[in-house]
């Protein structure tokens, strides 16, 4: 069953086009990785799905319902949760308060504050600590927990490994793998191609706001993704690259 359907999405930053006519379907239980260079439009697309960025054209359907005009906070209630780039925790709130804020309009489900603390044991001794005092890995775990506590049907993850120490990245991805194994529907933006291919069933490579390559992660070689990632094939076809 298709959970999320994007139809001809276009998004701009002022006059600058960031996403150009993207159509994409995400099935329930599927994990999709959006890859691409900086400025490819991945974050804008994710924010458009979450309702934080208004599309200039196109429609967003969630569970068969047109949610293009639905505001971000109502999309959370419907089951869409975003872990934003840079974590964006509320710095003066404690870890527990950050989680509780995410639980304000929660859907029924297994994720509670206690369940989050069980899933991310490193947060247990930190529940009364202000978010501003946490390390990057601890902040990322809190940000993921804050999204999970809404018991989303669709989890959007934007560059969860960005700026983290390798050991923290391992911890975050271990937790994500558990969610994927449980059959959660996830769309994640990831710069690390190896990790993206390992985690996702399908890889969508974006270039300059449009889809340059799409396919099952097992069927796409690293070389093909890299070509699409840097726009080498397009450049070759246009005769501007001799490599």
């Amino acid at each position: 069953m298709t959970l999320l359907s994007l139809q001809g999405i276009e998004a701009r930053h002022g006059l600058l086009p960031a996403v150009r006519g993207i159509s994409l379907d995400v099935a329930e239980g599927e994990t999709i990785a959006l890859v691409g260079a900086n400025g490819a439009g991945k974050t804008t697309l994710l924010r458009t799905i979450a309702g934080a960025h208004k599309p200039a054209a196109g429609r967003v359907f969630f569970a068969g319902e047109d949610i293009t005009r639905v505001r971000a906070h109502d999309r959370v209630r419907m089951g869409i949760a975003l872990v934003p780039e840079g974590r964006r925790l509320f710095p003066a709130l404690t870890v527990e308060e950050n989680l509780l804020v995410g639980a304000q309009r929660t859907r029924p489900g297994r994720w509670t504050v206690e369940a989050i603390l069980e899933a991310f044991p490193l947060l247990k001794p930190l529940r009364d600590r202000r978010a501003a005092t946490l390390s990057g890995g601890e902040q990322q775990a809190t940000a993921i927990g804050r999204a999970l506590i809404a018991n989303p049907r669709l989890l959007l993850l934007d560059e969860v490994s960005l700026g983290l120490a390798p050991i923290a990245v391992e911890g975050v991805y271990r937790s994500l793998q558990l969610l994927i194994d449980e059959g959660s529907t996830i769309v994640l933006v990831e710069q690390d191609l190896t990790r993206a291919r390992a985690v996702a069933k399908r890889v969508v490579c974006m270039l300059e706001g449009s889809v340059a390559l799409e396919g099952a992660s097992g069927e796409l070689s690293r070389e093909r993704i890299t070509e699409a990632y840097f726009g080498l094939r397009r450049a070759r076809e246009a005769g501007t690259w001799a490599g």
Partner: peptide
């Protein structure tokens, strides 16, 4: 902005 993203109107 982030408040909206965690379900706060």
């Amino acid at each position: 902005d982030t408040a909206e993203l965690v379900g706060i109107d």
